[in-house]
Measured scan of single mutants.
Amino acid sequence: ESETFDVELTKNVQGLGITIAGYIGDKKLEPSGIFVKSITKSSAVEHDGRIQIGDQIIAVDGTNLQGFTNQQAVEVLRHTGQTVLLTLMRRG
């Protein structure tokens, strides 16, 4: 069981404050995608409180990250504006 949710964030001096990890899993058993690996102290993400380590980032400002490499996803996140809309999925 999984839930998908949107989080809109405004960057602070730390930026968004997440590091991400790309993961290619076994299609049947484990998900592939871009996941939140860590959250920086005092960052926008930590202050917001809704995003957790292990959440999958589905889209950034409407750009679907399906099939993106870790590096491609980093580039998408790097080129966002001051306000960012993240679409995430959390597995229950």
Rank of each mutant, 00 (worst) to 15 (best):
I39K: 05
L9H: 00
V74A: 14
E46G: 09
R91W: 08
M89R: 14
G54T: 02
T83L: 04
N64T: 11
F68W: 06
V60G: 00
K27H: 12
G49V: 02
K37M: 05
S32Y: 10
T19K: 11
K37R: 09
S43C: 09
D26R: 09
T83H: 12
I34N: 04
I51G: 04
V45F: 08
A44Y: 08
N12I: 03
N70P: 13
T10G: 04
S42L: 09
K37V: 05
N12V: 05
Q72F: 03
S42D: 14
K27S: 15
G49H: 06
R90E: 00
G25W: 08
I39H: 02
E46L: 07
R50N: 07
I57Y: 02
D55S: 00
S2K: 14
L88D: 01
F35L: 07
V76I: 12
T83R: 13
E8T: 15
L88N: 01
Q66P: 00
F5K: 02
F35T: 07
L65K: 01
I24M: 13
R91N: 12
I51Y: 02
G62D: 04
T87I: 01
D48Y: 03
A73Q: 06
T63L: 12
T83Q: 09
T40L: 12
N70R: 14
T69H: 04
T69G: 06
R78S: 10
K11F: 01
G17P: 09
L16P: 03
I53P: 12
D61E: 00
G62E: 04
S43H: 06
A44L: 08
D26P: 12
L85W: 10
R91T: 11
G17K: 00
L65H: 01
E75A: 09
I57N: 02
D61G: 05
D6V: 14
Q72W: 02
I53Y: 01
E75N: 10
G54H: 08
V76T: 10
T10K: 14
L16Y: 06
H79L: 06
E75P: 01
H47I: 15
A21H: 13
T80A: 08
V60H: 00
I20V: 15
R91E: 10
G54W: 03
I57T: 01
I34G: 00
G17M: 03
E46C: 07
L9K: 01
T4I: 15
S42G: 13
E46Y: 14
K11W: 04
L88Y: 01
G17F: 03
V74Q: 14
I57W: 02
L85N: 13
G49F: 04
E1K: 13
I53C: 10
K11N: 10
S38F: 05
T87A: 01
S43Q: 06
Q52G: 06
I18T: 03
I39R: 00
V45G: 08
G15W: 04
T83C: 06
T63V: 13
K11A: 08
L85G: 09
V60N: 00
Q56E: 10
S43P: 05
R50D: 04
D6S: 14
G81M: 02
E75H: 09
G15S: 08
V60Q: 06
A44K: 07
R78T: 09
A73D: 01
T87C: 02
Q72E: 13
N12Q: 09
T63K: 13
V74L: 13
L9N: 02
K27Y: 09
T19S: 10
D61A: 03
I57Q: 02
K41V: 05
N70I: 15
D6A: 11
S43D: 05
E1Q: 07
Q82S: 12
G49N: 07
V7F: 04
L85Y: 08
L9V: 13
M89L: 13
G67A: 09
A44N: 07
A59Y: 02
A59P: 01
L9D: 00
L65I: 14
